[in-house]
Design a binder for these strands. Structure first.
Ligand SMILES: [Zn+2]
Ligand SMILES: [Zn+2]
Ligand SMILES: [Zn+2]
Ligand SMILES: [Zn+2]
Lengths: 332, 332
DNA sequence: TAACCAGGTCACAAGGTCAC
DNA sequence: GTGACCTTGTGACCTGGTTA
């Protein structure tokens, strides 16, 4: 419909602009011309007047020069290998998300089971089934572990290395996914779908006198991710960087180097993605994103402290093995 | 592919047209014939019937004549000095247009202020601001005067000459621009953007018993410009020719000659543009365009009469100085 | 919700080719 | 020289996602 500024002229030819295209006010024709000049590999050369044409629309060379002069830019394509890395991660993440939201685990699996079973027994949720905290939490664990196991190098690790690989990072992955999902649900704090709390009833009761303890765990990371408007692409690259953590004495030197190479590749992809998307603000963006790991560590410790406090206070065996495994890890 | 208008016939020979080629609907054969007639320098002459052949496809001479008759043209490059003149005017006009649509004058400027101030105080309109008749009208005046002051010779004129230069032509410029803008807005009569009338409420009320008076002012010029499909290039050349009006006793002989030279240059540019663009119809086109000045004069007088009638009927001081200045000019 | 913009689509005109 | 057919660049219009 009507432009807000209806009478701005095209910066290339003497017609009305139809909007702000590729960084300048131009008419539709000049917009299309500029776009084609980038998609068509054919070079633009030969100008009769040696670059001094007045009727810019009649000379491809001078028209293109004028486009550049008024600052038109088409953001360069990301290198295909970078897009491929991101596509693969997006695919893995979509699968993780699907596992999380569509299935439920009816068994009481241990961490060991989750790490080493080739395919976990999962049941599709019926539409009428209303998952509770334990359902969501279990699926969070299982989906994250499944996600991590999909990394190519996983199958070449020894049993001990596999165990160590998962244990080192899976809680961080869970918490980051939880935060990202919460932002998607327009929440300002960690939350499971349908408003299910990320702490079981018992813990909520235990801390009802000092709710700020739980709030301090729930809010900061989610708020920051919301504030930064972290994209799905940035999110999956972050999960990959966190997953490929080489700082672990369980690895052979060889495998440690492999994992380190992967982490470097994902970090490099994140840098290139940010430089491409945010141009001169790219480095700042990378820094902002990597700084999320600090808040992620805080949240991680927060969950750990709350659960530790709860377990110390009472241990009635109601907690699933996955959780006690997780807690053992903290108490160690 | 089927043509959208498949039923149109070739303007040269009795076959279906294949499209709009070189300025007329023709079949492919006649299109190719016309093109070759321009690339091949071989003269076309000798017609058995002395130019009265009926089977046009059998006589090269008569076929070519018919091509010209239906207005077929192969555009040649215009001389660069002509395109440069036009380009400069298009630039000035775009600037005038921008001033008109983007800014608003908050002061109550007199004509004297507008002519002699080096830079007028203008305010950028906020998106929410809805200009009324007085806003548009003031900006019409200011943008037109600013446009005229940009002509190179203006700064060499004496104060009295400057005043005279502007006063002689600025209303004509305003009216012509108004007409051209109205055509661009697909209106059949003078109109400001967003449907604002070109007469203030008071005058509309005064003439509501005999609306044909206002309609006779509003319509003829706009209708004719629409009918002729006047291009932006032709329009700016016309404004330049009208601006450089040497018939004014205020000028020194020297300056009068300068202005006259400018007017000749612009007229010559218009002729060459039309000859180039319309070939054998060029002279007719020039005539049609210059005849617009007659309708322009009519519209000018119409505005003058209406306003004079209004001012005679009542004078409550509500009118801005620019307008009273304009009316004094009529009453003199 | 509407304005906006990147990108896609396709009818179209101009120029080239080649058998005739 | 002719004209059917092809290739290419063009720009009006549409579409879907994003943002205020
Ligand atoms: Zn343009
Ligand atoms: Zn050029
Ligand atoms: Zn024909
Ligand atoms: Zn003949």
């Amino acid at each position: 419909m009507a432009l807000v500024r209806p009478d701005i002229m095209c910066g290339v030819c003497p017609t009305k602009a139809n909007g702000f295209n590729y960084g300048a006010y131009t008419c539709n024709a000049c917009k299309m011309f500029f776009r084609r000049s980038h998609t068509n590999p054919a070079e633009i050369h030969e100008c009769v007047t040696d670059g001094n044409c007045v009727q810019l629309r009649d000379c491809r060379y001078c028209r293109f020069q004028q486009c550049l002069n008024i600052g038109m830019v088409i953001p360069k394509q990301l290198k295909p290998e970078i897009t491929e890395i991101i596509q693969n991660l997006l695919y893995l993440d979509a699968h993780r998300n699907n596992t999380f939201s569509v299935y439920v685990s009816l068994d009481n699996l241990s961490l060991e089971d989750a790490i080493f079973s080739d395919s976990m027994k999962l049941t599709e949720k019926t539409p009428s089934y209303v998952p509770d905290y334990y359902d969501w939490s279990s699926m969070d664990h299982l989906a994250a572990i499944e996600f991590m196991k999909k990394f190519e190098f996983f199958k070449f690790l020894s049993k001990a290395e596999k165990r160590s690989f998962i244990k080192t990072s899976y809680i961080h992955i869970i918490v980051l996914c939880l935060a990202m999902r919460s932002v998607g649900l327009k929440s300002q704090e960690f939350v499971y779908p349908n408003g299910v709390d990320v702490f079981p009833k018992e813990i909520q009761v235990m801390f009802q006198k000092c709710p700020s303890v739980l709030a301090d765990v729930r809010c900061p990371l989610v708020a920051r991710i919301h504030e930064l408007k972290v994209t799905r692409e940035e999110f999956v690259l972050l999960t990959a960087i966190i997953t490929c953590n080489p700082g672990n004495e369980a690895y052979t030197v060889f495998n440690q180097e492999i994992i380190s190479k992967y982490q470097q590749a994902y970090t490099s992809a994140l840098v290139q993605y940010c430089l491409h998307t945010y141009q001169q603000f790219g480095p700042t963006r990378v820094n902002d994103l990597l700084s999320l790991c600090f808040l992620l560590g805080k949240a991680f410790e927060g969950f750990g402290s709350v659960w530790t406090a709860y377990m110390v206070a009472q241990n009635d065996g109601k907690v699933k093995k996955l959780h006690t495994d997780f807690l053992k890890y903290f108490l160690d």
